[in-house]
Design a protein around this nucleic acid. Structure first.
Lengths: 208, 208
DNA sequence: TGCAATTTTGCAGTCTCTGCAAATATTGCC
DNA sequence: GGCAATATTTGCAGAGACTGCAAAATTGCA
């Protein structure tokens, strides 16, 4: 059990409940479909009251996707792009995104199922996408920081350039993940990662 | 009045009702805020029953944004990218997007107000964005077509490259529009258009 | 005018999501 | 162990989005 023993009972319970909700949500959507799954059903299976459900997630979709709270994701982004070993911006962005939604996603059954659901219900994809959109400024800031540290000459509008770069990378990752799922979700994670980077490069060539 | 006389009374009425709903939606959101505006209020001002509202739009947000039906937008995309005079992919994509959401947006008061609303309520932005996401395949197809006609050597995965290119352009347009609105929405449309293209180019340089 | 097709509407009902206050659980402290 | 402070859970009542259905109104056309 990967339960950090530093956490008190209260926090451990909270984490456990959260996971129980996420699991219930995914399971029910898998059998009942996206519209067939109701908050009541999910709550019942997770053994909480429907009211409590909304103490944990803002919407049904959030629970299905297990969307973390903004703060957590923001920290992950800053840490990810900031600590990138490579000097290459594309790999820094792509690898950070994989740290958040990718590799982890492959490890647990829950998250693998989630990806299948997203494939089946595109509505969910755009919900997840929406979170990224909201995080654009965080990402941009991290990218600007990255550029400031490594590039001698910054572009004229670093924040905007960063935002567009992030958008392109998001699209690449999304495609790579889609392909990966389409191929049975069995290949090495690295395949996906390299694929995303390769796709980005290919696009850059064409746009030039 | 730009009412095509070719349309029968029935269709003209339908169009007029649609416009009345869109207008009512924008006006009410401007005074009451996004959450303060209800379908009942909008329907009342548009002089239709709440039930009829949902015969025209799938959701409150769709009405506020005046989201066209998919089919219409799809035709606009195919026509836009296909008929581009330039050989440059970035300008072909960007100009098509402006034809759909940009220049038109500046012409009528309704659409200018809409842009202000989007600025104030980011939730709407991602709703509009969502439509673009859904149209990704349409756009990609058009871009692939574009490439096929003009490039001697196609990239390895044309559809994917197209998707990423479109994503980058969408981000650029979004930023350009955001800036334009922030500056009072008064500058020439061409400014916005050139700005979007310039931003894309700047980003390409950095990602390289 | 009168019939067929389309559109509007009311109604009943389901579901998401929120505020509030009472009940319950956890924590830290004595 | 017991007690007070704090956090969490829950029930309840209610607003609002959205849907299916069938009756009523409107429009198109012979």
């Amino acid at each position: 059990m990967p339960n950090s023993p530093a956490l008190g009972l209260r926090d451990r319970k909270r984490l456990e409940t959260r996971l129980r909700i996420e699991t219930a949500a995914v399971e029910i959507v898998m059998t009942e479909g996206l519209d067939g799954a109701t908050v009541d059903m999910i709550s019942e299976r997770a053994e909480i009251s429907p009211r409590t459900f909304f103490n944990y997630f803002d919407s049904k979709e959030d629970a299905i996707l297990g969307l973390q709270e903004m703060g957590e994701v923001q920290r992950a982004i800053a840490a990810g792009i900031g600590s990138s070993e490579s000097d290459d911006l594309v790999s820094a962005i792509v690898s950070t995104m994989f740290e958040i939604v990718g590799p982890v996603a492959a490890r647990t059954q829950l998250k693998a199922q989630r990806m299948l659901l997203v494939k089946e219900h595109p509505r969910l994809l755009s919900r997840q996408f929406h979170q990224f959109t909201q995080l654009n400024s965080t990402m941009s800031a991290a990218v600007v920081e990255f550029l400031t540290q490594r590039e001698t000459t910054l572009p004229r509008d670093p924040e905007h350039v960063a935002e567009i770069a992030v958008a392109a990378c998001i699209a690449s990752v999304r495609i790579a993940v889609k392909e990966w799922v389409a191929n049975g979700a069995t290949a090495e994670i690295d395949t996906m990662y390299l694929r995303a980077i390769g796709l980005t490069r290919e696009t850059l060539k064409v746009l030039q």
